[in-house]
Each structure stands twice: as structure tokens, then as C-alpha cells.
């Protein structure tokens, strides 16, 4: 092995260690005893206390909160893919008046921070009576400027002939989009799925404001039961953090190739 290769590997190992350290610390902490956690500052465990996980799972209404996170996360994610593909297709392939302005507006939404919209959104949802409901959590999130942009870029690169061939074969524009054009943008769909789902799964702010009952809260808010005014139950909190991180971790393991493909392909052509 060449010296430069060894150096590169060492550097990568060092950076990886830096990134992995917090996760290792979380796992180690989650397996400690309640007194030990405050005393020990090493990675050595005297005993693996797996019972912490069972205790953490029972501490709050986690089953229900997992369900909430899943229902809202999956609905928002699939909904965004659907609306982004439709809008992206229109912006990539159809001619209509004001197309440029629409596209610019879509891009402009990317620079508006979500927090700015919270107050007007809360007022609207309150008037609809949608506070503390799935509807209120899902419907306002169903359009995503980034997703529209991503699909537009992908669709622009799909050869016209494919669509023409499909039309000649008897396919309507709708079936051409879903059967021929959309499959060419699967990396985009994969990227959007991972980005949106992870963002939704980790979201705390929106749930904090738009829900108020324990039954309607998500996993991230569920973690707060371990934090009290004067004490934090670190052991069970870390155990719960591990449990809550598992779904996104699995998603990354399955989808990281598509994710990289989606990001790199999407960036090539303007």
C-alpha cells in the first residue's frame, strides 16, 4: 500500500471516529445503571443493563407515538413525492403561461424559513378545527419546493422520444408519466423519500405547536418525559433515543446508494 493511501485511510478513520463517538456514547450510556451514569466517564461497562430499554419503552405512550410518527411521516413523504412529481413534470414538460414565474415562485419558497409560517398556519388550522389532528399535521406539508425542483431536473433529462413512443403505444399523458417517465426518476424519488421522512421523523417544533394531547404527540416529543425540571433520567433517555433512531437508521442503510445517486444526478444539469 502506498504511503498516501495509508494516510488517507487514517484520516478517514479519524473522522469516522469523531462522527461515531456520540452514538457510541449514547449506546453505552443507555446500558448503564442510574448511579453509574453519573460516576463513570469511560466506555467500559461493568454490566449490560438491557432492562433499561424495556423500562424506557414503557415510560411514555411510545407505541402510540411511534404510530403517529409513522402515519404522519409516511403520508407526508409519499404525498410530497406525488405532488412533486406532478408539479415537476408540468414545469419540465408542459407549456403554459407564466411557467417561469411559477417555477421561480417554487424556488423562492425554499428561502422562507418554516418558523415564519407557524403563526399564520396555526391561526388557519385553529379556524379549520384541525389542531391536534392528523389532517393538521399532514395537509400543510404536502408540497415541497425542493421536491418539485428535484423532479423537474430529472424529468428534463428523460428523452422526449420515450414519451412519444408511449403516446403512439396508446398511453395517455397520465399513464406515460407514471409508467414511463416517473420510473426514470426513481433516484429522485428515493432521495426525496429519505430527506423528507428523516426530517418528518425528527421534527419536534411542528408537533409541539400543533398537538397538545399525549396521544397525538410524536416520538421526539415522547422523549421529553425523561427530562424534568430538576433532573434528567439520562439512562432511559438514551435508551429511548436509540429506539427512536432505529427506523431512520434502517432507512439510511437501505437507501444510501439511491440517495447519493439522486443528489449527484440532480446536480449535474441546470
Amino acid at each position: 500500500m502506498k504511503a498516501s493511501t495509508i494516510f488517507k485511510h487514517l484520516l478517514l478513520a479519524l473522522i469516522s471516529t469523531l462522527f461515531l463517538m456520540p452514538f457510541v456514547w449514547i449506546i453505552v450510556t443507555s446500558l448503564r445503571g442510574p448511579v453509574e451514569v453519573l460516576r463513570e466517564h469511560t466506555l467500559i461497562l461493568s454490566r449490560f443493563r438491557w432492562e433499561n430499554y424495556i423500562s424506557a419503552w414503557r415510560a411514555s405512550n411510545f407505541p402510540r407515538q411511534f404510530l403517529n410518527s409513522f402515519v404522519v411521516g409516511v403520508s407526508v413523504t409519499l404525498g410530497q413525492i406525488f405532488t412533486s412529481a406532478l408539479a415537476g413534470y408540468a414545469l419540465a414538460r408542459m407549456e403554459f403561461k407564466g411557467k417561469k414565474i411559477v417555477f421561480m415562485t417554487v424556488l423562492a419558497t425554499l428561502i422562507i424559513p418554516y418558523h415564519m409560517l407557524v403563526v399564520p398556519l396555526f391561526v388557519m388550522l385553529a379556524r379549520f378545527g384541525w389542531i391536534n389532528t392528523y389532517r393538521g399535521l399532514i395537509i400543510p406539508m404536502l408540497a415541497n419546493g425542493f421536491g418539485i425542483y428535484l423532479f423537474r431536473q430529472f424529468f428534463k433529462k428523460v428523452p422526449w422520444q420515450l414519451e412519444e413512443a408511449a403516446a403512439i403505444d396508446g398511453a395517455s399523458r397520465w399513464s406515460t408519466l407514471w409508467r414511463v417517465v416517473f420510473p426514470q426518476a426513481l433516484p429522485a424519488a428515493g432521495t426525496l423519500f429519505i430527506f423528507t421522512f428523516v426530517a418528518e421523523w425528527n421534527d419536534l417544533f411542528r408537533w409541539l405547536i400543533f398537538t397538545h394531547s399525549t396521544e397525538m404527540r410524536n416520538v421526539q416529543l415522547g422523549l421529553s418525559v425523561f427530562q424534568e425540571q430538576f433532573a434528567t433520567d439520562y439512562v432511559r433517555l438514551m435508551a429511548a433515543v436509540v429506539i427512536v433512531t432505529v427506523p431512520t437508521f434502517i432507512l439510511f442503510v437501505i437507501g444510501h446508494k439511491k440517495l447519493i445517486q439522486g443528489i449527484s444526478l440532480g446536480g449535474i444539469k441546470g
Binding site: 422520444q161 420515450l162 412519444e164 408511449a166 409508467r179
Partner: peptide, 10 residues
């Protein structure tokens, strides 16, 4: 039949 065939890649 198109010059570049335009087969559905998926």
C-alpha cells in the same frame, strides 16, 4: 420505430 429505438429503460 424511432431512430434510437426509444425502448422503455425500466
Amino acid at each position: 420505430v424511432f431512430q434510437n429505438y426509444a425502448l422503455y429503460p425500466n
